[in-house]
Every structure is written in C-alpha cells, then in structure tokens.
Design a protein around this nucleic acid. Structure first.
Lengths: 294, 294
DNA sequence: CGATCTTACGGGATTCGTAAACATA
DNA sequence: TATGTTTACGAATCCCGTAAGATCG
C-alpha cells in the first residue's frame, strides 16, 4: 500500500473542512469513497491522521505535521505541472536564435513581431552573428534555431531551406549605371570594389564569381559588416555585391541595387537545427512560421 | 487525463536510462506498460518529453526542464512520507511532558531511561513544574502528557490514574520517633512543622489533614520545593509531610520516613491529557508504558 | 535477423457510488 | 431523530502483462 496524489488532495481537503461530507462535495466524490481514501492513506503512512472521536474529525499531531508537508507537496506539484503545460501551450518559454546579420536586420524584425504577437509571453534571445558562428551556436546548443545560408558542411546538423537569395550589386544612386535593370560582373569591374572581409562566406562567394567572370577590377577595401560596406558605397568609394536580403537596408542608405549576372550568385537561405525533432515547442512554432513565410 | 506519481517515477527512470527496456526492469513493470505510462504522462502535460527518432529516446527541451522538477518533487514526496512513517514507527518524534517535581525527581528518570532505550530517536522535553502549571501546560498544548495528582477540576482534560500515593512523615534520623513504623498527625504536632507554600496542592491536603486531626503544632516555615523542605528537616528545624513519591529523595537526604495515620492522606497519581485519542504516537507509547508500570 | 518501441486486447486490481448499518448529539 | 461516518457490495475504470506489429540498424 502506497500513498497517492488523490489521497493527499483528499487529506488536505478534509483537514481544511474538518468534515468528510463537506470535503467530498469539494472533491466531487462520494462520502464513502473519501472515507476509504483517508483510511487507505493512513494505512500507507502507518498511523492515524485524524481522530474519529465524536462525529467530527480532528487532526492528530502527526496529521498536523503532515498537513504542512502535504500542502507544500501539492503546491509544488501543481506548479511544476502547470509550468510545463504552459511551455507546451506556448504561454511561456524561451526562443534562442542565431541569425546572420543580413537576415536579422532585414527580415527578422517583422517575423519576430508576428511571432511575438501570437505568443507574447515567450522570451526571445537573438544572436546576430556571422554565418560560421551561427553554425557553432546551433551545434553547441546556445541557439535552437540558426538562420543562415546553407552551409557547405552541415556537420551533423539539419538544414531546411525556405528561400533563395540572388546577390545584388549596390552602387551610388548618382552612378551612371543607376538607371539599369541589371549589371554584369564585367561591367562592375570598372569601379573599385568594396568587399566583405576574407574568411566570410559572402566574400568566398563573391571571390568565386569574380574568378568565374574574369573580373579584373580593383579591390579597394574590405569591411566586416554590410552596413559599413553600404556606407562606403554611398560615400562614393566604389561598388559592392551583397545578398539580396539586404536590399531594404541598402535602399535605406539611398543606394541603387541592380540585378547581377554572369554569373548569378545564388544561395539558399534557411533554418539550421541540431535535430529536427529535438527542439522546443516554442522553437518548433517559430520554425513553422519561418518555413511557411519563406 | 492527469499526471500521476507512478508516471513521474517512470519518467525519471526512463530519462536516466534513456531506454524503456532498461527502465522497465528497474521499475519492475513490462516494457509496454512503461510505454503507455510515458505516453499518458506526455498527454497529461500537453506535449512530448522524449524524441522517438531512431530507436533510442532523447529528452526534449521541455523534458529536460521537467526532469529537474520531477526529481525534486519525488525527492520531497519520499522524504515527507518517510518522515511521517518514521514518526508512526517511533523512529523519530518529540515527547513533551509536564511533570510534578515529586514524580520527575523520583520516578521519571528510570521510566524515561526505559523509554529512551526502546525509542532512542525520540527527543524528550520535560517541564518539571508544580501541579497547577502541569494542568496549564497540558491544557495549552505545551505538553501532551502531564503527570500529576488527580486535579479537583479537570476542566475538560482527561485523567488516567495509575497509582496511589500515601503521604509520609519525614523526620530527622536522630529524632526519637525515628524507630517507629508509623506516626499520627497528633504525634507529629509536638514538633515544628515545615510546610509547602500556601496555594500548592500538597499544602492544601496537609492543611486539610491537620484540621481533620485536630493538629495543634507550630508551623515554623514554608518552602516552595520539596528538596528545600527535606534539607530543612535534615538540619533539625522540624518535621514535614510529603508525598510518598519522595521517599527515595528523602532517604537520600538521610531522613527517616514514617507511615502517616489519622488521617491517611492519599492521592491518586496519574496522567493528564487533553483528549485520550488526540496524542502523538510517541506520547501514546509513553502513556502505555506509564499506565502499565503503575 | 535482432533489438527496441508501439499497438491491441484480455485479466486483475483498484476505486467509485449506492445502499445499509452505525454512532452521536 | 437528524447528522455524519463507516461498512458492504456491485459496477465502472484504470493499469498491467502477454502477444502481435512496426521500425531501424
């Protein structure tokens, strides 16, 4: 014979009301059922919790001590169960994201605003970091979801693409090419080039495209952040090529964005997760929104 | 559908072993039973605790959080249940006694030594106080058991006598009466009398006996404590009458104790409790020893 | 194939509710 | 007698174990 949750709830109800009749009404069970429940609990604990003299029940000293413990146990129980249920209902939780800056700056805010509107009690942590560090953050568990271009080496992670990004050329609005719809790498090579720093994925892809196109322009300078590059272009230092994701940002700087050809540089954008099934309910909800929205 | 203790124990076992097969062996239930238990728990909580991809289980983020809570809940549960069971098994507990000094000094030590030998982990608190305060201590719940003479007014308390006490005369060992077997109040009245202070029960009874016997001796002095009275008698100041309970004590002072007649002063000694059924297991055990031993 | 988890189903234990007996003011 | 608890017993529910099915290495 072992004590049960129901028995504990029954016990606290009886202890509060000092009456089986009243307690049975509270618990929505019959008086006799409550009577045997209490008796079974007492048997499980090895002694009496109530005195049955006369027709009203009174706690024994042991019952009085156990009442304190029982109420605390039940309180902790209900609290713990509710906490997890809230997590599953997305009424509570944490969403840890690692996002490349191009996405974080241009696409993420609206997505997160929508997510936050639907699930206002989920805390959100964004690591806006470069692609390599996004992979690391996901692999090491600091982020449940990474948003990045498709990596060359997944290293055991899962990648779910939800969009394609064609790189674009960005030039000053006053530039002679500004009226054009599209431009080729060769045409760009007349202007000094402002590139991402070596070692970055964007730089690797632009370098590859330059080699493929026979580009022969001058590489004027390098910077770590796309916003810096944008400002350098705006200042008339030269031109650059950036992910299409950044178009709103570049528009904001007053730059002209042109479709880029010969070759087209296209990368898949998507979500990176450790294992698809192993993410939290909040992360899963966001992932669904992500893949649905493209 | 609601979560259950068994389900929580099942969950922690599975989380530890990461295997239904191993956990089912630990829990002494079949694999399928464990499978449905976990599934029911997940249903009750509103989401998955494990990932079932491949053939080994891995905790979800929610499962990982719930594991901490579950282990703490179970630990608290087991601890609380065990604490009460220990109380009922007399492996733990408290025994609060209020005892008149005559009993506390002469009879209680051996009784408590025996009780402590049988139940070494029960803490004992003794209030050795005068009869009126014994009644108050029991009535106010500071003591579960009082040991005293039968009070005139029970005031709602219960008294269980377990012995009778015939008051005795105490005289110096060098006194002419010292060889006698018994003595009467009248014979005592030749000597100065050393009495308990007014207001004490012993004094009330000795006063009554004096009146009944036509005692006409001198009341030389009064004291609060029987040990003081004993020492005064030993110093040759006079004689006194004390409860028979005190005979060992008086013997220890080197005094001579004589049976007292005309009238015999006899009082019932017993245990005073709030309500017979409402005392703790430890108090009940001691009460049984008390009434059995006389 | 072998190991593991899941599903299906029959048997057994537990628990509940109704009805009757019991106790007390 | 009225109120409230306990006991008795039939019924429903829940839980477990065996057996069969499914999945992956």
């Amino acid at each position: 014979m072992t004590a049960t949750l129901k028995q504990l709830r029954a016990f606290t109800a009886v202890a509060r009301t000092r009456s089986l009749a009243q307690a049975s009404a509270l618990l929505h069970i019959s008086q006799p059922a409550l009577s045997v429940a209490i008796r079974n609990l007492e048997e499980a604990l090895g002694g009496a919790l109530f005195n049955r003299d006369s027709r009203q029940l009174a706690l024994t000293p042991e019952g009085r001590e156990f009442l304190d413990r029982a109420e605390q146990l039940l309180h902790n129980w209900d609290q713990s169960v509710d906490a997890i249920q809230q997590r599953f209902r997305l009424e509570r939780g944490q969403l840890n994201l690692a996002v490349i800056p191009a996405f974080a700056l241009n696409r993420l805010p609206d997505l997160l605003a929508r997510f936050h509107g639907q699930h206002p009690d989920i805390n959100i942590v964004i690591e806006d970091i470069v692609m390599e560090r996004v992979q690391r953050a996901v692999r090491e568990g600091r982020a449940e979801i990474g948003i990045t271009f498709r990596p060359d080496d997944l290293g055991g992670l899962e990648f779910m693409g939800f969009g394609r990004d064609r790189f674009i050329a960005v030039i000053p609005a006053t530039h002679p090419l500004a009226g054009r719809e599209s431009v080729t790498w060769r045409e760009l090579s007349r202007e000094p080039f402002i590139a991402m720093n070596r070692g970055s994925a964007v730089r690797r892809w632009t370098d590859g495209a330059m080699a493929e196109s026979g580009y022969e322009g001058r590489l004027l300078c390098e910077a770590n952040q796309l916003s810096t590059i944008g400002q350098l272009v705006r200042a008339g230092m030269g031109v650059s090529v950036v992910p299409e994701l950044c178009r709103p940002q570049m528009d904001g700087y007053g730059l002209c964005s042109l479709t880029l050809r010969a070759p087209v540089v296209e990368q898949e954008v998507g979500a990176l997760v450790r294992r698809r099934g192993a993410i939290s309910a909040s992360a899963d909800a966001f992932l669904e929104m992500l893949t649905a929205a493209g």
